[in-house]
């Protein structure tokens, strides 16, 4: 099985999805910037979308996975809008976007 056939197979899609998921997880852990954490979350959601699309083509051979992906994309858009509004609010209050500094509710 050469690499070109591997790229169009289910395994190729799943590998790209797994790599994107763990890179997103690493971004969530590694970044201090709240916007960087948001970028990691977007990567994780995209990885889930890839898996749904791949299984919908190669296993189910139906469009249900594509509909779930549609809902994932819409939820991600709503989540990004609210998260960025919170980040801008935090910046206005504390002059920082460092996730470690957002400790107003800690004490």
């Amino acid at each position: 099985m050469n690499i070109l056939d591997w790229a169009v197979s289910l395994e190729g899609y799943l590998c790209v999805g797994a790599i994107l998921f763990f890179l997103g997880l690493a971004a969530v852990l590694y970044r201090r910037n709240a916007i960087g954490i948001l970028l990691g979350i977007e990567l994780i959601l995209n990885a889930a979308s890839i898996n749904f699309i791949a299984f919908s083509k190669y296993r189910a051979v139906a469009i249900d996975g594509q509909l779930v992906t549609l809902f994932i994309i819409l939820i991600a858009a709503a989540e990004a809008a609210v998260a960025l509004a919170i980040i801008l609010r935090l910046y206005r209050l504390r002059e920082t976007v460092d996730a470690g500094e957002a400790s107003i509710m800690r004490n």
Partner: peptide
Amino acid sequence: MFVYAGADFIAGVQVIVYVGGV
């Protein structure tokens, strides 16, 4: 990748919402 998996409509939504919006 979505286009190659037969999800042409979802690929369009992906470009519009993610690339154009998020």
